[in-house]
Design a binder for these strands. Structure first.
Lengths: 209, 209
DNA sequence: ATCTTGATGGTACAGCCGTATCACGTACGT
DNA sequence: ACGTACGTGATACGGCTGTACCATCAAGAT
């Protein structure tokens, strides 16, 4: 046989090419030939590693979600040596805002996938809503911890707030994406809402435990 | 000449056909032939009234925005004979949530346009962000009125809250659209946030003025 | 009555898309 | 050493897309 190739690695390379061109020209305008050219390979190779375009798109979606997870992790790590709940929450929510090229691409392509998943039975909702659900649970847990630590108002429904914050972040992200709002103003709105949640209970000391 | 035809009316008929098929199969999958078939006319006629697909899409967007405006107005009117600020705000925000077929189509197609406008220079942001900006101003004004009437907390920045509410509503709408959340839970979250804003100033009587 | 012009139908054309097919080289198992 | 399976290239094919072209009918103007 010829040089044995790591299929998983090659598939990821091609998936990254897909995301790059999708971020530039829109997911709807992405063809297999574009992906091949962007990845520097022949059209045949894209066919070889992903037999069909549908599989390519699905893998692209998974790859995008994975990269975003790493981005959030990195952001939390960059927030300091031992980031508190608020820092973690801010890292999660601002990571999705289109503030730089990577997050801009992420938001655009992810929204494109979301739109496609509504009508395309292939990109079924099943794999699509898994990650948002996980984010919602993680955020809820962070808010609960903040409440127990006395950092956040204890009279709030943590899950309700988590859902609201994620929807707020997504909505703000879209408005930034279409140029209606600047990233700074979006962050201002987000911070404002976090300030209302992260208020110590009246007369409570921020005790550990 | 043959039967003189009202061009504006015919264009609206075709635009409605466009929106119907876009709501069913996704805006990305809409071709001129589909629109023609849905409208019950020949392909040639679609070309005749909209010379190019780009112009058809642009008119479709305007028509969608207009229909949504009427929907909001109708909702406000249905909220009672003399709806107060809170009722008006609720009508605006819930009208965009995908609770029935019409709003579902609206949200899907509008989001599709938003995604397209990011990369397509034709659907420039110029006409696209006009309506959201108007909604933001209208909502801000309603919140200010509520504050002056003592119905809403006076210590809030009305515009900041308006921006947040619109982004929240948009984000919730998308999550409902992709099937992550039920319309009821979205309304719950929205109502919850409105409850926090629409609180009378401590010790203030809801006097008119 | 004829000419003009708006409205409509049918259809052809060039281009792109995803997919399939054929061909070839190369490196490992035997 | 050799055959077999993997990796890769080139290209063809059918279908769909937006657009352009040609023809026709109808009704008002002259």
């Amino acid at each position: 046989m010829p040089k044995r190739v790591d299929h998983a690695e090659r598939r990821d390379q091609i998936a990254e090419a897909l995301l790059r061109v999708a971020g530039r020209r829109g997911l709807h305008a992405v063809g297999m030939r574009d992906v091949a050219a962007e990845a520097g390979v022949s059209l045949r190779l894209v066919q070889y590693y992903f037999e069909t375009k549908e599989k390519l798109l699905l893998h692209g979606l998974r790859h995008l979600a994975a990269r975003f997870g790493e981005r959030v992790t990195a952001r939390i790590g960059a927030a300091g040596p031992a980031p508190g709940p608020r820092e973690r929450v801010e890292a999660m929510l601002t990571a999705a805002l289109p503030t730089d090229e990577e997050s801009r691409t992420f938001h655009l392509v992810y929204t494109s996938y979301a739109v496609l998943s509504v009508t395309d039975p292939a990109l079924a909702a099943q794999p699509f809503i898994k990650d948002p659900d996980a984010a919602e649970s993680a955020l809820t847990e962070l808010l609960r911890q903040a409440q127990e630590s006395g950092l956040a108002r204890p009279d709030l429904d943590a899950r309700l707030e988590a859902v609201g914050l994620l929807a707020l972040s997504a909505g703000l992200g879209t408005s930034v994406l279409v140029g209606q709002r600047t990233p700074e103003s979006a962050i201002t709105v987000l911070t404002h809402h976090l300030d209302r949640i992260f208020q110590p209970a009246p007369g409570a000391q921020p005790a550990a435990g």
